[in-house]
């Protein structure tokens, strides 16, 4: 800079910006370098099967011969033959499974959240043997779902099950209940087993959040004589809300894809069939790869929409908080 024509201020203002942008560019480059392997793996193990599933959903592929199929457009979803509407979107069984899944998700996650909070609060209290209790409570979560579902299947067996036996002896019921076969109890039974299995997971996530909370504010509330229930709703709950939301989203995603628990407990019963069980039935039992893929694609879309809605709702609420 021998010919100083520009005012010093302008030079000072432009130079740091130029330097910062090159620094930013380097940072962005190394960020991409770091996430590239993860992206590649994701594309290979998730993107490719997903793309293939979506592609198959527009074909009439059959499980017997996957290489021989023709493109049929949206006919798996919706088609009109001689004035009659056909396809997945008109199938009452499909909509039944969607409804079952949403109901199961809503009810089970709600119960698990409430119970999880209660258990976490108990585990967060200081009492002897707390460490052991924390380990013990994890057992249902540690058992593989298929195993615990089978176990519950036996316990819930209408003739030989221990649960009917106990209830009969206690005089609570007069006749054995066919828990998993009766349409009135089947879905509730599934929910109960899921709650048994998953509450520990919720409890542990919430417990982690509780242990991050500062202790002094509880002492301050105690000195100020604030009722414990009020402290819970006005202090604890708002402070663990972010962690709670994450836990609920995790659980809801799991619940929307529920398969093994329902399949082992009630097989292909329409009363409890979830979206995933429906898709499996189409794909494997009926060998209708096209229809099954269409169902899988719809599952993907439904879950994606729900996640997007949750994230948007969460962001809106966060935005309000910082203001």
């Amino acid at each position: 800079m021998t010919d100083v024509t520009a005012p010093g201020l302008a030079g000072a203002a432009t130079r740091p910006r130029g330097r910062a942008s090159s620094l930013t560019r380097t940072r962005v480059r190394s960020a991409w370098a770091f996430i590239a392997p993860a992206l590649v793996v994701l594309v290979l193990v998730a993107g490719w099967p997903l793309a293939r599933t979506i592609w198959f959903s527009f074909t009439d592929a059959d499980l017997n011969n996957l290489s021989d199929y023709t493109f049929i457009g949206f006919e798996n979803y919706l088609a009109n033959y001689d004035g009659e509407w056909l396809g997945l979107l008109t199938d009452p069984d499909w909509w039944r499974s969607v409804w079952n899944t949403l109901w199961f998700t809503l009810v089970s996650v709600s119960i698990e959240t409430v119970l999880g909070i209660v258990v976490a609060l108990i585990l967060n209290a200081h009492f002897p043997g707390r460490g052991i209790m924390r380990a013990v409570i994890l057992i249902p979560w540690a058992i593989p779902t298929v195993v615990s579902a089978k176990m519950w299947n036996w316990m819930l067996h209408d003739q030989f099950g221990v649960i009917n036996d106990m209830l009969l002896r206690l005089g609570i019921i007069a006749a054995p209940i066919t828990w998993t076969a009766n349409p009135d109890t089947a879905l509730w039974t599934v929910v109960m087993v899921d709650v048994w299995k998953t509450t520990p997971f919720m409890a542990l996530l919430i417990l982690a959040a509780l242990q991050m909370l500062p202790q002094d504010i509880y002492e301050a509330a105690k000195v100020d004589g604030v009722h414990p229930m009020r402290v819970f709703f006005r202090v604890t709950l708002p402070l663990i809300k972010p962690a709670l939301l994450v836990a609920v989203i995790f659980r809801a995603l799991d619940a929307l894809r529920v398969f093994d628990l329902i399949y082992v407990l009630t097989a292909n019963s329409k009363d409890t069939m979830s979206m995933s069980v429906f898709a499996r039935q189409q794909l494997v039992e009926f060998q209708e790869v096209g229809l099954g893929s269409a169902a899988s694609t719809l599952i993907f879309l439904i879950i994606a929409l729900l996640v997007a809605a949750t994230l948007v709702a969460g962001r809106v609420r966060l935005g309000e908080e910082t203001r």
Partner: peptide, 16 residues
């Protein structure tokens, strides 16, 4: 504590 009608200021402030 509440019944003792005391107020405490903590080292860590203990604000909500």
């Amino acid at each position: 504590p509440a019944k003792r009608r005391i107020a405490m200021v903590f080292q860590s402030y203990a604000l909500y």
